[in-house]
Design a protein around this nucleic acid. Structure first.
Length: 504
RNA sequence: CGCGGGGUGGAGCAGCCUGGUAGCUCGCAAGGCUCAUAACCUUGAGGUCCUGAGUUCAAAUCUCAGCCCCGCAACCA
């Protein structure tokens, strides 16, 4: 299926409610999916998200809430689905790791790898940190405390199953070297490569004995054990869109994915574990993976105890959905970390959305109303004499593949959302300048009807172009603008983004 | 021996890989305009590009040394 676009977010772990980070990855994926639908056609895009629901943390959280793990997950899943609805997320499929279709594929994958000898049994002895679900070897543990969380670790000795990561280390290095576009951005690729060069991979422990953890997918060849959550979760990308046939060949219309999006903290799993799992299973690798940055919250050190964690819903309710989408994608280059604060959101809102874009649309509507009785003028024939003052702007938006569109799309192709939005805003600024230079109010006074008409035609055209390119980023705003400047008669409503007063 | 990110006009950042007049947004000041949401447009002030040394005709940009800041807590994007 050439030209298709299969894009994924990670499966979000349901041990807590969704927060700004989840919404960031998902909004970015949504924007790309919308863009690609427009470019490649609705039927050629598949956008997957979902939830990861097994593992010890869920088991414990459920216990604390006095629910079964499944009931607990069901509740949290509703929060995710509710948020995606609120954020206008256009996913095609939502997969849960507790679904049959997923469990089937995981079981088959385990079986295949076991038969192949890539999963083996071994005795494990060491320390275990329950809250972190992490094993530690003697050298890593000081005073029986977890190196990560400093809590007390337990001595354990048990039989477990291991996946042969180490065997494939050199292959993976070679693969990443010969596919420089695989891990993005480039700095992350270097990070992964260096990691692979400096460290020797350990085989990955992929099981937990049932007496310690019940909530998981049982190993088909060792029913007393369940699968480790990461091994389980990663497979969603293929379990959602395909199956293994009788010959253990994986079949799917959508696979391989064109892009896995994630935050930088789970790069390792996606750039190391996942490709090796796929390779061992004889399945094609995804085309690209992209790890973006984190949002830092001011006063984060005390954020939890003070309860001032950012809830995406609050921000959306306060400032509007598209303002939130805009802020996340504009304020920081995708890939880098950023600082999140309401002041920053308000700043962006007022200067970019209210003053630049909203005001441009509003003043244009008013002019159409005032000078043309609300009828949007049309070009009849070819002989409109554009005002030379509009030359720059016309050059930019001329033709089907205008410079403007090319630049905006270039940003999207490179996952550089802030670049695209910057291009859109530079056209908006040009348009505001164009109004100033043309001085339509003088044209009106001097009864220069033709010039006025030529001017407004250009202006409306610019705004339509802006609305068009804005569509994947801010779908509601885009259609609102199109509606207001509808084909014949304008529908001037309230300003799109009423200016927010200071304070708050 | 920690790991990673970073230090650029008042604030937030880009530029650094591929050396060559230091750029953007916000804020500030002055002016202009009235179609517009006290919005828009123009101009201006303001910088030892952390420090030192080195390479070079030339360094924010490359090399070395040093100083300082942030994250590595939660939850995880």
């Amino acid at each position: 299926m050439p030209g298709k676009f299969y894009i994924t977010t990670p499966l979000y772990y349901v041990n807590a409610s969704p927060h700004i980070g989840h919404s960031y990855t998902t909004i970015a994926a949504d924007t790309l999916a919308r863009y690609m639908r427009n470019k490649a056609g609705e039927d050629n895009v598949w956008f997957l998200t979902g939830t990861d629901e097994h593992g010890q943390k869920i088991e414990k959280a459920a216990e604390a809430a006095q629910l079964t793990p499944k009931d607990f997950a069901d509740e949290v899943v509703l929060k995710f689905i509710g948020l995606w609805k609120k954020l206008n997320i256009s996913y095609n499929d939502f997969i849960r790791t507790t679904e049959d279709r997923h469990i089937q594929v995981v079981s088959r994958a385990l079986e295949i790898l076991y038969k192949k000898g890539d999963i083996y049994e071994d005795k494990y002895e060491g320390w275990y940190c329950t809250p972190c679900e992490t094993f530690w070897i003697d050298a890593q543990v000081i005073d029986q405390a977890c190196p990560d969380c400093k809590r007390k670790v337990e001595r354990i000795s048990e039989t477990n199953y291991f996946f042969r990561l180490a065997k494939y280390q050199d292959w993976l290095r070679g693969y990443i070297n010969s596919h420089p576009d695989f891990v993005n951005p480039e700095s992350r690729k270097e990070e992964v490569l260096r990691f692979l060069e400096l460290n020797k991979l350990n085989d990955l422990c992929i099981s937990r004995p049932k007496e310690r953890l019940k909530w998981g997918i049982p190993l088909p060849f060792a029913p007393a054990h369940v699968t480790y959550v990461w091994f389980d979760a990663l497979l969603n990308y293929i379990s959602a869109v395909g199956y293994f046939d009788e010959n253990n060949k994986y079949r799917s219309k959508w696979w391989p994915a064109q892009l896995h999006l994630m935050a930088k903290d789970i790069l390792r799993q996606h750039a190391v574990y996942w490709p090796i799992m796929l390779y061992a299973l004889g399945i094609d690798l995804p085309e690209k993976i992209f790890a973006h940055g984190w949002w830092m919250l001011k006063e984060e050190k005390i954020s939890k105890s003070r309860g001032n964690v950012i809830n995406p819903l609050d921000i959306v309710n306060k400032y509007g959905l598209d303002a939130y989408r805009y802020f996340l994608l504009r304020d920081v280059p995708f890939g880098l970390d950023g600082n999140f604060s309401e002041e920053a959101v308000i700043k962006r809102y007022n200067s970019d959305l209210a003053n630049d874009l909203g005001n441009l649309v509003y003043r244009t509507l008013t002019m159409v109303e005032k000078y043309f009785d609300g009828n949007v003028p049309h070009v009849e024939g070819e002989e409109i004499n554009y005002d030379p003052r509009g030359e720059d702007i016309i050059k930019r938006i001329e033709g089907r593949d205008s410079i403007f569109q090319k630049e905006v799309r270039k940003g999207l192709e490179e996952y550089n959302f802030s670049y695209s939005l910057g291009e859109i805003w530079s056209l908006i600024n040009m348009a505001n300048k164009y109004v100033e230079e043309t001085k339509p109010w003088n044209l009106a006074k001097e009864n220069k009807g033709d010039e006025l008409k030529a001017f407004i035609i250009v202006l409306v055209k610019v705004i339509r172009q802006v609305a068009g390119e804005l569509k994947p980023f801010m779908p509601d705003t885009s259609s609102a603008i199109i509606n207001q400047l509808g084909s014949q008669k304008i529908e001037k409503g309230a300003p799109l983004f009423p200016r927010l007063l200071p304070q708050c």
